[in-house]
């Protein structure tokens, strides 16, 4: 797909999120910036606890009041960081929607799925009960639920996990939002079901032109789905690039490590899967250093004392259009990826 960037539909600048308790402050997200173009799929990858979900929740305005948010979040050119709950209520579900990691618990067990889909339509489009129900049936069909006219009156416990996630997607796309945030939408599902969910997301992107922020730690999903990838580590962005470029030529040592840790069929015999040594640092300090330095084979004194900027590397084709290859590293790597990408040629 063409990456010619029009005006970004979602633009995050210097987003910082910290949680304060009596004893310590945790910096969950530290100066993160990204743009998403209309119809684009941006994958945000990283280990658990690297701030992927917190970023998404911050964009949705769903963080608890204990969270302190800094920076700017612009949706369709409108600043939404620091908006009141009331203003957010008019935006959420209509201009920006989210699906969650836990399809089993994300639907209300005591309401029919028709009602739960209809609710968002009645809220934002002012549909009557009857109209909302009819539209809910259409939406269920759109996300690939068989016999939608019967399913619409069922309750969540009568549906499987995959079906529930489809219902969540139906709710999310009901009002045709310009941005859809999918927070690990397939993590809790069987592999066979995962493919179906990703297909639905892809087709919605094509049909409705929805931009998708896909949060995942599954690099296979990234390779299959994303246009661009943002790699996060310990609350900071470490690398960002168009997907093919990232897989072909990762520049940050952490991205190298991530790609190296993927198991691939047909690899060289019984090789032990390479892992990244050490642990993710605790998030209660904000060191003026590279947070990955303690685990990095290429680290030197500079890495331990000053924080690398998130800079555009050697210009590539997409650089001008905003799809630059950026990395936060003093020693960007040049070696090709340990393994070739699984993406089929020609994509």
């Amino acid at each position: 797909m063409s990456l010619a960037m029009s005006e970004p539909v979602l633009s995050v600048r210097d987003l910082s999120v910290s949680f304060c308790s009596d004893t310590r402050t945790v910096h969950a997200v530290d100066h993160l910036s990204y743009d998403v173009a209309p119809g684009e799929v941006l994958a945000v990858v990283g280990e658990s606890g690297c701030g992927k979900s917190v970023t998404a929740m911050a964009v949705m305005g769903l963080l608890p009041p204990t969270a302190r948010i800094g920076g700017s979040i612009r949706l369709g050119g409108r600043e939404i960081a620091g908006a009141s709950e009331k203003e957010l209520g008019r935006i959420r579900g209509k201009d920006i929607a989210m699906i969650f990691q836990e399809p089993m618990t994300s639907l209300n067990p005591v309401l029919t799925i028709g009602r739960q889909i209809g609710e968002v339509l009645r809220r934002h489009q002012g549909l009557s009960k009857k109209e909302a129900r009819a539209r809910a049936v259409e939406l269920l069909g759109l996300v690939g639920i068989p016999a939608p006219a019967q399913r619409v009156d069922e309750y969540p416990h009568q549906l499987s996990g995959g079906m529930r996630q489809r219902v969540m997607i139906a709710i999310a796309v009901a009002c045709d939002p310009s941005v859809l945030i999918a927070d690990e939408p397939t993590t809790a599902l069987d592999v066979t079901v995962q493919a179906g969910i990703l297909e639905v997301l892809q087709s919605l992107r094509e049909r409705l032109g929805t931009a998708i922020v896909l949060i995942t730690h599954d690099l296979g999903v990234v390779a299959d789905t994303a246009d661009r990838v943002l790699v996060m580590y310990a609350g900071r962005p470490v690398e960002q690039a168009p997907v093919d470029e990232l897989f072909a030529e990762p520049r940050h040592p952490y991205t190298h490590g991530l790609l190296g840790a993927v198991l691939r069929p047909g690899g060289e015999g019984k090789r032990r899967l390479p892992e990244i040594p050490g642990l993710v640092p605790s998030l209660d300090t904000q060191p003026e250093a590279c947070t990955f330095a303690p685990r990095c084979a290429h680290a030197d004194d500079r890495c331990a004392t000053s924080r690398p900027g998130f800079k555009t590397l050697a210009p590539n084709a997409g650089a001008a259009a905003g799809a630059a290859h950026r990395a936060a590293c003093w020693h960007p790597q040049h070696a090709p990826a340990l393994m070739p990408t699984t993406r089929e040629a020609g994509q």
């Binding site: 008019r90 959420r92 929607a97 639907l107 609710e119």
Partner: peptide, 20 residues
Amino acid sequence: DYVRTARAKGLSRREVIGTH
């Protein structure tokens, strides 16, 4: 989680608390 979903839909506080 379903209350988070309800909030993510943009429902009013009244609906989130009273219904969900």
